[in-house]
Amino acid sequence: MLLALIVLYVVSLLYLSIIERFRHYVMILALQGWLLFGVALLRWHASEWYELAFVVTETLIFKALVLPAILYRVIRRTGINRVHTASVAVFNQLLMSMGLLLGSLVMTYYMAADTQFDMVFFGVALYAVLSGMLLIITHKRIFSHLVGFLVIENGVFLFAMAIGVEMPYLINIAILLDILMSVLMLGMVIARIGTRYRHMNVDNLDSLKD
């Protein structure tokens, strides 16, 4: 079951590279939130129940419900719809994403062998982080950049699971609040940029230079 969820997660990352509408981005991020919730739930045995209960609740509320809601709100407020200004063709993006998947697997084999890491989690986490970066690099619309940031964040979450790190509650809550506030702030800035610029491309944001 766990493996099936992870495979679905990888498919969702691949699908991210060919999406053409912002709403689909949000749907995929919400799906990833639910998948991560499932993964956290299935790893119940790995730690103390109350610690995992916190992680599971956090994942469900934050990743599967709150973040998609914030993103939908940004889409409604700005009226943005199509991801038509990628600087790389969709097919090429898919190829690049597959290349990153392959690279992540090779790197995982090299890095995570003979360690305490969960290799599957480690490889997929690495692929998620790289996919987020690819999304940021290959897309011109700043909303895509926000999605890329959240994909990286999901990758970091998986990475924490691969390592099996257990941080105190207070720190976990603080980290969660930090990321939530960042996303809220980025969403607000995107909304303001949307009222000032029609296309919301990074090309509009190049006045600060020497």
């Binding site: 926000l146 990286i152 980025l186 800035v189």
Partner: peptide, 18 residues
């Protein structure tokens, strides 16, 4: 320009800190 600087600051710092 302050809007642009704010976007860049929050986005790049958040990604970097991540």
């Amino acid at each position: 320009s302050s809007l642009e600087a704010t976007w860049k600051y929050v986005f790049i710092c958040s990604t970097g800190i991540l």
